[in-house]
């Protein structure tokens, strides 16, 4: 549980260091490569990883259901 706690602490620190970014200053943040979620081309990769590995979730993907998985 140490690592998740560290992650939360990092998030909090990052949050406190936030700058206000206006819409016209978001050209880099809005770049297609900067997306925080999964890109569509990664969809099947996430699918096979969730079957070939015991862990899944926390990646904005599916968290169960849908396949018998051989």
């Amino acid at each position: 549980m140490v690592l998740p706690m560290l992650a939360v602490i990092c998030m909090t620190m990052a949050g406190s260091a936030c700058q206000t970014v206006k819409e016209y200053q978001k050209s880099r943040l809005n770049d297609g490569e900067m997306v925080l979620g999964n890109r569509k081309v990664e969809k099947t990769e996430l699918n096979f990883q969730s079957y070939r590995e015991g862990a899944s979730g926390a990646n904005a993907g599916k968290s169960g259901g849908g396949c018998g998985c051989n």
Binding site: M11, A14, G15, A17, C18, Q19, V21, Q25, K26, R28, L29, M34, L36
Partner: peptide, 8 residues
């Protein structure tokens, strides 16, 4: 969260 113009 957007942190700055280059980091989220």
């Amino acid at each position: 969260q957007i942190i700055n113009q280059q980091l989220q």
